[in-house]
């Protein structure tokens, strides 16, 4: 029996003697990780939805009535050079009439060809980094300073609400992550403690014979790693099974890529190892 085989034999002893405790820990952790996985998917899907919606956000700057058409190109140029703006499109009175026609299905200005009252405007598209209420408000303020611009509009309140919702989801995710981390550690620590309690005498004897702390703790580190890692993998397997049973046409659900899942399971296993050490720490003193 080498040191390594002793470690694995001790691990086997723990699982063989306390199968209920190990299974209970595995299932409760799997359930916990499943909850986290579901939230992860929900957050990723929401984030994608948010990015998609936000990318459609445009700002419209209306040209003042006194501006003559020859002044439009230099004005468009000046606006295009503003930081954060990626594209700018000029909407003439005629174009505005076409757009209105498309929207309503009928031309309301028939008979008023010489006196089109629709305003001229610029539709401004932003870089993805600038698609936030702060940057857009700053651009809006800058554009309002142009004497040739009569009014600037964009969905300011909607953007603020969307950002606030995003912040709430992020905070909730963080709180849930911390909650799950703590629960997973406490659950694993208790599980390891339960398994070691009955073996206190044996541990003391092994210590008395000169066995090092790490040598004694190793089987429990591996056990914590196994239980936690397997629980995380079981959570993802359940998600994978569920994803094949459900198909949504309205929303595209965003699943993490395999590399992220592997990293998550590895992190869960590392968490289990820490829990294993914490579980046996008292016995090693």
């Amino acid at each position: 029996m080498s040191r390594l085989s002793h470690i694995f034999r001790e691990l086997g002893r723990s699982l063989y003697r306390f199968p209920g405790t190990a299974l209970g820990a595995l299932l409760s952790l799997a359930l916990l990780f499943l909850l986290f996985d579901l939230f992860w998917i929900a957050a990723a899907t929401t984030e994608q939805l948010y990015t998609r919606l936000i990318s459609q956000l445009r700002m419209e700057a209306f040209v003042a009535e006194h501006v003559i058409d020859t002044e439009i190109p230099p004005l468009q140029d000046a606006i295009a050079h503003t930081e954060g703006i990626i594209a700018i499109e000029y909407i003439s009175r005629e174009k505005a009439r076409e757009v209105l026609h498309e929207m309503l299905g009928t031309d309301l200005l028939i008979g008023y060809d010489s006196a089109n009252p629709l305003p001229r405007s610029f539709i401004i598209e932003f870089e993805s980094d600038a698609l936030n209420s702060e940057d857009m408000a700053s651009v809006c303020e800058g554009l309002s300073g142009f004497p040739e611009i009569a009014e600037v509009t964009y969905s300011q309140q909607w953007l603020k609400n969307a950002e606030a919702t995003r912040v709430i989801i992020k905070r909730f995710g963080l709180a849930l992550g911390v909650f799950i981390l703590l629960t997973a550690i406490i659950s694993s620590v208790n599980n390891i403690r339960l398994m070691t309690r009955a073996r206190t005498e044996g541990f003391q004897q092994m210590r008395l014979l000169g066995a090092g702390r790490l040598f004694l703790a190793f089987p429990f580190l591996i056990e914590g790693m196994l239980i936690s890692g397997l629980s995380a993998a079981a959570g993802w397997l359940a998600i994978n099974y569920g994803s094949h049973q459900i198909s949504l046409t309205q929303i595209e659900i965003v699943y993490p890529v395999i590399e992220e899942i592997v990293i998550f399971c590895a992190a869960a296993a590392a968490l289990g190892a820490i829990s294993g050490y914490l579980g046996i720490r008292k016995l090693l003193r």
């Binding site: 029996m1 040191r3 002793h6 002893r13 003697r17 044996g202 004897q205 000169g210």
Partner: peptide, 21 residues
């Protein structure tokens, strides 16, 4: 000094050699 209850007689006897490698 006592024996480790979860180990067999052979494992108990050989334990000092296991930890020395």
């Amino acid at each position: 000094f006592g024996l480790v209850p979860s180990m067999t007689v052979a494992e108990n006897i050989a334990f000092p050699l296991v930890i020395t490698g």
